[in-house]
């Protein structure tokens, strides 16, 4: 009981002791890098639709996302993406590039433990929750729409 009081006091003290860093630079960086990635996506999408007028908008979006996923994965492999990520924070995590990076980076990291149990098994240590929660949530939505 006494420990609990002591710990709480210590935690509050530490919280107050942590030097407040200015959040604005990182917020600004995440804004413009995130905006830029979306704009690149839009540009790619528009060029695609101009080059292939018969393409459906849905396919064009799919190709756009695949293009961004490819770029993020490639830059991760080259060891550049983590530097951009450290600079932009959520600016690269929130766009689909973050999803791609979170699959490619463990694939690179755990390659040393073998292709099967290392690379393939560990590929989803970060992105796994995204796929699981997305699948479950979409099925819940589907079930709701089935009954209304």
């Amino acid at each position: 009981m006494q420990d609990k009081v002591r710990n709480e006091r210590y935690n509050n003290y530490v919280e107050a002791k942590i030097a407040k860093t200015h959040a604005w630079p990182s917020l600004f960086n995440s804004f413009w890098v995130g905006g830029l990635i979306c704009t690149i996506g839009q540009l790619f999408n528009d060029v695609l639709l101009l080059s292939f007028p018969n393409m459906s908008t849905q396919s064009a979006w799919a190709f756009t996302l695949i293009f961004l996923i490819f770029m993020a994965s490639f830059l991760t492999g080259l060891g550049i993406f983590d530097k951009i990520g450290a600079f932009a924070g959520a600016g690269t995590i929130v766009p689909i590039t973050g999803f791609s990076n979170s699959i490619t980076s463990p694939a690179l990291e755990f390659k040393n433990e073998g292709i099967i149990f290392g690379m393939c098994a560990k590929m989803f240590i970060i992105a796994g929750p995204v796929i699981v929660s997305g699948t479950v949530a979409s099925m819940v939505v589907g079930l709701i729409y089935l009954f209304i």
Binding site: A23, F31, C38, I93
Partner: peptide, 10 residues
């Protein structure tokens, strides 16, 4: 809009 969403994320 894209930048704003990332901004919220940050």
């Amino acid at each position: 809009s894209g930048g704003f969403i990332c901004f919220i994320g940050q």
